[in-house]
Amino acid sequence: MKRRPGKGKTRNTGRRAFLRSLGKAAASVGAALVGGAGMFGHSSTGRAAVAKPAPPEIPGYDWNKHRWGYGIDANRCIGCLRCVEACKAENDVFLSAHHFRTWVERYVWLDGEERPRVDSHADPGNIAASGSEKQFRFDNRYRDEKVYKAFFVPKICNHCRHPSCVSVCPTGATFKTDDGAVLIDHSYCIGCQYCVQACPYGARFFDPRTHVTEKCTWCYHRITKGLKPACVEVCPVNARIFGDLNNQASDISKFLRENRVQVLKPETGNAPTCFYVGLDKEVS
């Protein structure tokens, strides 16, 4: 799946230009047939008839030059939930205990128990502790227990190489970019939620305000300007790592080089590009 720079670029540009013009033609024919372009909701982007959209027009950014990757060192996570708060604020994620682009899970084995007790900050007990569905914290429920082992695991969209959410989307509104992110064209999504079903990781949700599906974008608006995703930016312990896999000196390349990493649910064949250190067999 690796793209050869240079050669691939020209070929792709030609094909995209062709598809774009094809799309424009199809969109205008469709609009003429129905007598109004508004019905299609996306005629301005002119990408009808192509499942894969044209590259975003971001000044100074070429998605062929990047291949983003995400790392999580679960050993480092302290469950402070700055990442969750930052994500909600940065991306205007619906403030409730049921809509998250990223979340943190807590695994606790009590003395003598075989299986862990698992919860996230969305757990009713934790919401009660925070006092609001709009604020997040882990309560102190194990204070008087004998804890055998415990750790946190941050979760996020895995931006899979073979994303099942993309393959099931009936319109192509959700797509994999050439730089590795899985995004959604909100103006084209019909809100069928087939992708919500198909994601094995529960990373997608239906936004009750916009009536379309939502998910993590790795803060695409930030990373294409050379910034880090909000969750990575605010993590006080560097549990979240982000960078360009094409760049040998990037944080993520270093992370992958220096660690033996795992991915979540490898048996699905989705091939996540979110790599973990410090997982446990009980984490799924």
Partner: peptide
């Protein structure tokens, strides 16, 4: 009708 105008064939 998006699904009919631009069907995503893997779906």
């Amino acid at each position: 009708f998006n699904a009919m105008i631009t069907p995503h064939l893997t779906s």
